[in-house]
């Protein structure tokens, strides 16, 4: 695993590893508000079955998860718990921020008790806009994240040279989001 950590894996092995990682994402459902229901519809319903994408929405603990979906309003009282959850997840870990509330505060932009965006606390990989986003939008976010993982250079990730967060539905960015851009500073 030392080779993986330092990102010095031979290229075929690296792509094989990335392929495996992208199709076995264990996602922890951090359901907070309305978006949790749409997340449940995307992950738990027969219509938008997420398991066909190679995403397993089963872990009962963040310690077993690769990906967390922050779905819903993060309040100031909840923020420490979100931070703690993120710290409990093993590396490499990814975050999908689902819904306007988690992205930026949404309809509660002037509320006294709401954290205006979960990216103030933890780094976000994919933003899914909407209030709430449709389940299809969340699945799109998952697919875009899988594309990124498949092309990811672990070495660059460990050196902190990530790529910009993906925004679902942003036509100018989602086209190029599949390829990881080396040297572009990670915007957290």
């Amino acid at each position: 695993m030392g080779l993986v950590d330092r990102g010095r894996l031979p290229k075929p092995l690296n792509s094989l590893l990335n392929l495996g990682r992208s199709y076995s994402l264990w996602v922890y459902q951090w359901g907070l508000a309305c978006c949790a229901i749409e997340m449940g519809a995307a992950f738990g319903s027969p219509r938008y079955d997420v398991m066909r994408l190679g995403v397993i929405p089963l872990p009962a603990s963040p310690r077993q998860a690769d990906l967390v979906v922050i779905s819903g309003t993060v309040t100031d009282k909840m923020a420490p718990a979100v931070k703690r959850l993120y710290e409990q997840m093993p590396e490499p870990k990814y975050v999908i921020s689902m819904g306007s509330c988690a992205n930026c505060g949404g309809p509660y932009w002037d509320s006294y008790s709401v954290t205006k965006g979960v990216d103030q606390i933890i780094p976000v990989d994919v933003y899914v806009p909407g209030c709430p986003p449709r389940p299809e939008a969340l699945l799109e976010g998952v697919v875009l994240l899988q594309q990124r993982i498949r092309n990811e250079d672990m070495g660059a990730r460990w050196r902190g040279e990530g790529s910009k967060p993906i925004i679902v539905g942003d036509a100018s960015k989602s086209a190029s989001s599949g390829a990881s851009k080396k040297g572009v500073a990670r915007v957290d």
Binding site: L32, T73, T75, M78, Y108, D110, S111, Y112, S113, V114
Partner: peptide, 14 residues
């Protein structure tokens, strides 16, 4: 309670 308090009553005033 209070982990999902979003301040509706105050927000309706503005």
């Amino acid at each position: 309670c209070g982990y999902m308090h979003r301040g509706y009553e105050k927000l309706t005033e503005v």
